[in-house]
C-alpha cells in the first residue's frame, strides 16, 4: 500500500499555488491535511501526476472575526485549531461542539477544514455544519475569487462546486444571532468514525422564547448533507414542542433518499434520521447550547 509516483510542488504563496493548480488542472491534485487523500493514494484509487501541497502557503490558515461578527476560517486551518480556539467557541459554538466527533486527535492535528469540505464525504461533519450555518465558500483561482453558498457547494458524493483550477481558501460563517441555540447528534459505529447518520440544528429563539428560525441538517443519509426546509418551516409555524420535534424527525425521514451500505441499510438510516433530528432539537432546550459552548 504505497503511493504512486508524482511530481511535488510546495508553493509558498497563494498566488503561486493558484498558478500551479491552473497549470496542472488536468492531472494535478491539491494536498492539504491529506488525512483522506493520502489513503486514496496509498490504496491507488487515484494517481495524479502532480501534487500541489498547500501546507506551506502563507496566510492560508487561521480563524478570525469578520467586521459583521461572522467567523472567517481559512481553508488550511487544522481541525484541532478550530476545536481549541476561544474565538471559534465565541463566534460559532456549534463548530466547537462538533469537533470532538471529527475522527481522532492525530487526524485533527493534521486535517484541515478546507480539505474536509473539498473532499465532501457525505458522512463528514464539517460539510454538514457549514450547510447548517449557511456558510459561504470562497473559491480562489487565477481569475480571482468567487463566493459559493454552502447550499450550492456540495453537489454529490466527493463532488463540489470547485473547478479543477480552484482552491477553497476560506469558509465564512455568518454572525451568530442572540437567542440562537444549537444541537448536534450523530450515530457512528465507534466514536470518531464517520457518521452512519447525523444531524446538526440551529434554533433562533426570539425574546418571547418562540422559535423564530430553525435550520435542520441531516447528513450521512444521502449523497450530500441536506437541509430539511419543510421541517424548519413547520417548527417556525408551530413552535418547539416534544410533538413538533418528533414531527421534524418524521418529515426528515420522508425527505431523504438514503442508500444501503456496509454499515447500515437505507431503512436504518431512514429510521435513525428521525431520531437524530429529534435528539438534536431536544438539545436546544438546554441553556448550555446558547452563545458560548459549554
Amino acid at each position: 500500500m504505497k503511493p504512486p509516483p508524482f511530481a511535488y510542488f510546495a508553493p509558498r504563496s497563494l498566488d503561486e499555488a493558484v498558478k500551479l493548480i491552473d497549470e496542472h488542472q488536468d492531472d494535478g491534485k491539491l494536498l492539504s491535511g491529506g488525512q483522506s487523500f493520502v489513503p486514496v493514494l496509498s490504496l491507488r484509487l487515484a494517481s495524479p501526476a502532480t501534487i500541489i501541497d498547500l501546507n506551506r502557503v502563507e496566510g492560508l490558515g487561521g480563524a478570525s472575526e469578520m467586521p459583521d461578527g461572522g467567523l472567517r476560517v481559512r481553508g488550511l486551518t487544522r481541525h484541532r485549531e478550530i476545536e481549541l480556539s476561544p474565538l471559534v467557541a465565541r463566534l460559532n459554538p456549534l463548530l466547537t461542539g462538533t469537533m470532538p466527533h471529527v475522527a481522532h486527535v492525530q487526524i485533527r492535528n493534521r486535517g484541515t477544514t478546507g480539505g474536509s469540505c473539498s473532499h465532501a464525504d457525505p458522512a463528514a461533519e464539517m460539510p454538514a455544519i457549514a450547510l447548517t450555518c449557511d456558510a459561504d465558500f470562497v473559491l480562489t483561482s487565477v481569475t480571482g475569487e468567487r463566493v459559493v453558498p454552502a447550499g450550492e457547494f456540495f453537489q454529490g458524493v466527493f463532488t463540489t462546486a470547485l473547478e479543477a483550477n480552484e482552491i477553497l481558501t476560506e469558509i465564512r460563517y455568518p454572525a451568530w444571532p442572540k437567542g440562537r441555540r444549537w444541537g448536534f447528534e450523530e450515530m457512528a459505529r465507534r466514536r470518531g468514525d464517520f457518521a452512519i447518520v447525523g444531524s446538526a440544528v440551529l434554533v433562533d429563539f426570539d425574546e418571547a422564547g418562540r422559535c423564530g428560525a430553525a435550520k435542520i441538517t441531516i447528513f450521512g443519509a444521502g449523497d450530500i448533507p441536506l437541509r430539511i426546509a419543510e421541517a424548519e418551516e413547520m417548527l417556525v409555524a408551530k413552535g418547539l414542542t416534544p410533538e413538533t420535534m418528533r414531527e421534524a424527525g418524521r418529515i426528515t425521514s420522508a425527505a431523504i433518499e438514503p442508500r444501503d451500505d456496509l454499515h447500515a441499510s437505507a431503512d436504518y438510516r431512514r429510521d435513525v434520521s428521525a431520531v437524530m433530528v429529534r435528539r438534536a432539537l431536544e438539545q436546544t432546550a438546554s441553556p448550555l447550547r446558547t452563545g458560548v459552548a459549554a
Binding site: Y8, Q35, D53, Q106, R110
Partner: peptide
Amino acid sequence: CEHGVCGACTIIVGEASMRSCLMFAVQ
C-alpha cells in the same frame, strides 16, 4: 495499516501527534 486508521505510526511533529503514514517525507 498504511491508511491512517490504526495509529501505530504516530509520531510527534512539533508538539502534536500525527500519523506518519499520512504524511510525505518531503513535508
